[in-house]
Design a protein around this nucleic acid. Sequence first.
DNA 1: CGGATTCGATGACTTTTACTCATGCCTGAC
DNA 2: GTCAGGCATGAGTAAAAGTCATCGAATCCG
Lengths: 303, 303
Amino acid sequence: MPDVNIHSLKSLAIFKTLLEAGSASQAARTLGITQSGVSRSLAQLEENLGIQLFLREKNRLVATPEAHELYEEILRLMGNIEELRHSVLALKEFGTSRLRIAAIPGLAFGFVPRLIGTLLEQNRGFSISFDMMSSHDVLREVESGHADIGFVTLPVSSRLVRIEEWLTTHARCLLPRGHALAEKDEVTIEDLRDQYLVISNQPNVGADPLLHLAASHSISIAGKTESNIGAIAALVASGVGISVMNPITATDQLVGRSDVVMRPFAPTISFSFGMVYREDWKNVRALDSIRQTGNELLKTYPD
Amino acid sequence: MPDVNIHSLKSLAIFKTLLEAGSASQAARTLGITQSGVSRSLAQLEENLGIQLFLREKNRLVATPEAHELYEEILRLMGNIEELRHSVLALKEFGTSRLRIAAIPGLAFGFVPRLIGTLLEQNRGFSISFDMMSSHDVLREVESGHADIGFVTLPVSSRLVRIEEWLTTHARCLLPRGHALAEKDEVTIEDLRDQYLVISNQPNVGADPLLHLAASHSISIAGKTESNIGAIAALVASGVGISVMNPITATDQLVGRSDVVMRPFAPTISFSFGMVYREDWKNVRALDSIRQTGNELLKTYPD
DNA sequence: CGGATTCGATGACTTTTACTCATGCCTGAC
DNA sequence: GTCAGGCATGAGTAAAAGTCATCGAATCCG
């Protein structure tokens, strides 16, 4: 008995069409080949697999239960092949079919998901994995090759990694709608005296630029709440305190919210973001596509 | 530009061997074809896909990054094809590549999992899904075609379903090791006077055969705890009470336990189990295999 | 440096696979 | 009985996949 050997995708496709069409003649018409070609292909497949797939009854082909089971399996395999095809298309277009992206929390709730969504819109063949972590960890993941592309807070330095600055922007103040300071055109550091603040989690609280600025202006605040950056808007809306953060993150968090307003803040606190990738990963086509998409996305944010 | 068309598995296999071997000559030797065949196959594949997979440098073939990415994709596809091959082998052997089994809780913690394990040992191509439910629900699932094979408590009746009696057996008593009744060779209904019992969940407590028997002998018990059948041995071991159940379920539950002992019980309470399947599902080869396996498994249980 | 060996590509050719054309037999409808 | 449609098969054709022989390039070794 010969071993089961699957080497012809075409004969599987002919079998599939035959089962769907209900007759060899109709299958032939659908596929644009002759009926005798269908007949031969089926006979050959039955011989190769060692299974009778159709009974020959009254000059008609009647599918066996085995045929129906094989049909389900073949549908699955054809799905796999279609995936491979998409990967090849992505490979042609971008030089890679798979992208591993890591980003800081401040960009992970809006900007980077939108970037990913747009990339996938432009090419469904891409397979993207996405992870959120601190700026320091992003750099480490990219250096070690566990991520291809990273989005980090600048400045960072590394000998292994190429660093592209994407944006420098200035902090904005988030206030509950109806708050006294919401009436002002601009919130200043003096306005924060005796206010409750909501600040993002830091490995080291002393590193928070806002607290630094307040201390250097001898402003004492009523108190502070630390939070994951993804929850700050909700805390502000709930009256826990006011917050100062970069406008990219702020805009992302305020989507669909009308209970929090955003105001310019003085003096200026700068935030810079950038993209990093390994020198030896320089995939020109994919990078160009990401830059273009990212640049267009940044235009949708306030200055 | 021609569309990407994947129609030759052989050329994918040649590419894969080429990447692994490191040279066209070595790949040819490994595959048992000529070097020029490898060369042509690669050139044709590159043309079909529209991707350069190897650079021609200093009379050698040097894989591009794209080649490495495609290699990963092809490994995945070949795994899918191997799965299909196994399914076909199962189809040849048993007439089906997929089995949906439903069983009552009493058999679902040992007997049926062991049956499944043995079936899969004999044919890795099978794909089996397994669900646990009441005897009544098992019958319904089989009747409606959502399950192929059911294991139920007998008696049941159905016009749609074929019912095979597999075993009639007699209840045993489960006791904590060291319990006074554990010294006896046989536990009787009178021994249960003033004892705490652990009984399995029933839709209707009045249906419990043990409580029925006690009542008909005017035996009053100290109390009862109802439990999912899978937890009864643990409750007995913990001193919650003693239990009376069929020896198949009991044996399965006592595997690896030395803190519970099993004793014959009188008078006899009978339990019957059987297999059910739809009349129109009669897959002779699969059924034979299941019966044989089940029969051998039953021999490993006490009478 | 020259010769030997190995490498990959390609022309010419051969073999294998997949199909077409034509035909015959069977079945069902009218 | 006739006709239309179905499937299988002989003979033949076309396309795909390979072999054999050869060439130029590269590397190794004495």
